[in-house]
Design a protein around this nucleic acid. Structure first.
Length: 586
RNA sequence: GGCCCCGUAGCUCAGCUGGAUAGAGCAGCAGCCUUCUAAGCUGUUGGUCGCAGGUUCGAAUCCUGCCGGGGUCGCCA
């Protein structure tokens, strides 16, 4: 139940009626009309810009049109007051009865309140994490992982058919390097002194268990074999081990993908899916042999101007055409991307979301270009970049140096501060802003720590119910009973404010999903928690406002309904963020 | 040099896809613990929304150009 949608539809009906009656011209374009909460609560519950955006087409001025619409809206059900303000805003104040109906709906729906069918069941593919299988995940990967996962939850709540996907970059030179690095650890495991790890190989200790595993499984049999023979074997074992490690790390964050897609499967026999994709592009005139202009500014030292197979990306919005084939005749990483995108398209997805790190900024245009070339205008390709994470401890930056092999891993951070803190803090910032993550702050149990603050509000809700059961042992506090409470008892300003916030939750979820911005959910919850803590505290000065009132059963029941609604919204939002909603803080 | 992101209060950030007098938290200042958990709450000080133009009824938001910070730029993935 989204009151903003509901009144937008009523407004449209009113305009249509006035058109039919000849008071307004027919066929007005309502696409720019919005019904939204006014910034200032003093302006009522709903505000619309209808008069201002329609005035020109209606051949009148905004104030006059606003007055016309306002008098028609006064007759609408649930409307207590209509005012025209400023340049032509129409402000609606809803009746207490209508707000109480919304509260009743929220109580009835529980944690399902706010879910919608805005996505119309359309198939959407969210690809996230996709960390290379060459080592443990670091904190930057963690941000993309958490963001992608919360976004997927959010889109599911908004009525999309969501597939969560992980692209395994298990082809190319990097996994050969991984294999050689693991082979070295294998020799080490067999007792050899390997000395320092040579430049160009992965130095991290995390490969030692892989070496041991290889030694256990193959004994000394790989020692005498030529590289061409052992490399594919070691590579497979090492990739599997790395993916197991990554899956463990993701599980520690509560993240589970539906599909793990291997890049290597795109290569296959005779060029496989990549060749098929390029042939497809070629058939549509998107492929040619030509030269790429060198980058402006500083020219790479080994730059060699040569002809190569190119994707005509500039025809579909990119800045330059993109190489599909390397000088050794093998396909570029980008060529595999083309095949992968084509595969997703053939699996029937209408929306493709890529969650990438900030260092992939250069990829946005070319992925969208491929999307247009392969899927046409119906295929929506959205690339969301997660900016860098700065890891701090008490304000001091913690260095994350991958070269030294001793970088801070995601796992270490999860083990130190817990899943909930990692997830919430990663989501308490826009994805395109850099994020300071302070290991000291996120474990503080204080209002400075938003994770704690929101979880505490949920725990307090639970605490109210525990208290109520003690004071009124025979009181039925099940949702079915709460729904029948006397909501008109909730007349204090702070109580009404909370009802209004609850009423805004469905709209907030829809807007967050449409904008692909899960952080809005986190901020909404923080605001709701703040309003709830505030009401809680009011009961200190005004005992009659306390949730549980020994001498007033009816008020208690009504307030329990309110608390139940708050709790449901907090639980629903936290579930989308993938953060626990505790019954009590310990 | 090209492209992408960021620039809002002393600090950290929101700002609901163009709305009304730009909002929170922290820090500062002034208050609130015989309490339904003070792990919290109330009040208050503080802004030329980087700068300059433009678009329109209306701009922190959209467009252009600058300034500052970060990222990235064929044959790595």
């Amino acid at each position: 139940m989204n009151i903003f949608d509901a009144y937008q539809r009523r407004l449209a009906a009113v305009i249509e009626r006035l058109s039919a009656e000849g008071q307004l011209p027919p066929g007005l374009d309502l696409s720019r009309v919005v019904v939204e909460p006014p910034r200032d609560a003093a302006h009522g519950d709903l505000a619309t810009n209808a008069a201002m955006v329609l005035a020109k087409d209606a051949k009148t001025n905004p104030r006059a049109l606003a007055e016309t619409l306002a008098s028609a809206l006064r007759a609408e059900n649930g409307v207590a007051r209509v005012e025209v303000a400023g340049p032509g805003f129409i402000n609606l104040t809803l009746t207490p009865a209508l707000l109480q109906d919304v509260l009743g709906a929220a109580v009835r729906a529980g944690e399902a309140f706010g879910r919608s069918s805005a996505g119309k069941g359309e198939k959407i593919n969210v690809e996230y994490v996709s960390a290379n299988p060459t080592g443990p995940m670091h904190v930057g990967h963690g941000r993309g992982a958490v963001f992608g996962d919360a976004l997927a939850n959010l889109l599911a709540a908004a009525g999309y058919d969501v597939t969560r996907e992980y692209y395994i970059n298990d082809a190319g030179a990097q996994v050969d390097v991984l294999a050689r690095s693991a082979y070295l650890r294998y020799r080490e495991a067999l007792g050899e002194d390997i000395g320092a790890i040579p430049e160009g190989l992965y130095p991290g200790d995390y490969l030692k268990p892989v070496g041991t595993m290889l030694a256990d499984r193959f004994g000394r049999s790989l020692l005498a074999a030529p590289e061409a023979e052992w490399l594919p074997i070691v590579r497979n074992v090492a990739i599997d081990a790395m993916m197991d490690m990554i899956r463990d790390d993701l599980a520690a964050l509560g993240i589970h993908h539906d599909v793990f897609f291997s890049e290597r499967t795109l290569h296959g026999e005779n060029g496989g899916a990549i060749k098929a994709a390029i042939d497809d592009l070629q058939a549509h005139g998107y492929v040619y042999v030509g030269r790429v202009p060198p980058p402006k500014g500083q020219l790479p030292e080994d730059w060699e101007d040569r002809e190569q197979l190119l994707f005509r990306a500039t025809d579909v919005g990119d800045d330059i055409d993109r190489p599909l084939m390397k000088s050794d005749g093998s396909y570029t990483y980008f060529a595999a991307d083309v095949a992968y995108l084509r595969d997703k398209h053939e699996r029937g997805f209408e929306h493709l979301v890529y969650v990438l790190g900030a260092d992939h900024g250069g990829y946005v245009k070319r992925l969208q270009a491929v999307g247009r070339a392969i899927g046409g205008p119906e295929l929506e390709v959205t690339v969301l970049l997660c900016q860098l994470v700065r890891l701090l401890r008490g304000g001091e930056q913690v260095r994350m140096s991958k070269r030294a092999g001793d970088f801070v891993t995601l796992r270490e951070v999860i083990d130190e501060v817990g899943r909930d803190a990692v997830r919430f803090m990663m989501l308490f910032r826009k994805n395109d802003a850099t994020l300071d993550f302070d290991l000291a702050k996120v474990v503080e149990q204080s209002k400075d720590n938003p994770v704690f603050y929101v979880q505490y509000a949920h725990a307090r809700c639970a605490s109210v119910f525990r208290q109520a059961r003690e004071v009124f042992p025979d009181l039925d506090t099940a949702p079915a009973a709460l729904e029948k409470a006397q909501f008109d008892r909730l007349s204090d300003e702070a109580e009404v404010d909370i009802i209004k916030r609850v009423a805004q939750y469905p709209r907030a979820l829809e807007a967050a999903a449409a904008a692909r911005e899960p952080h809005r959910v986190a901020f909404f919850l923080h605001d709701l928690a703040s309003a709830f803590h505030s009401l809680w505290n009011k009961g200190k000065d005004a005992p009659e406002l306390r949730f549980v009132n020994q001498t007033d059963r009816d008020s208690t029941l009504a307030r329990l309904a309110l608390v139940h609604a708050v709790r449901s919204v907090l639980a629903s939002g936290l579930a989308i963020l993938g953060v626990a909603a505790p019954e009590e803080m310990r």
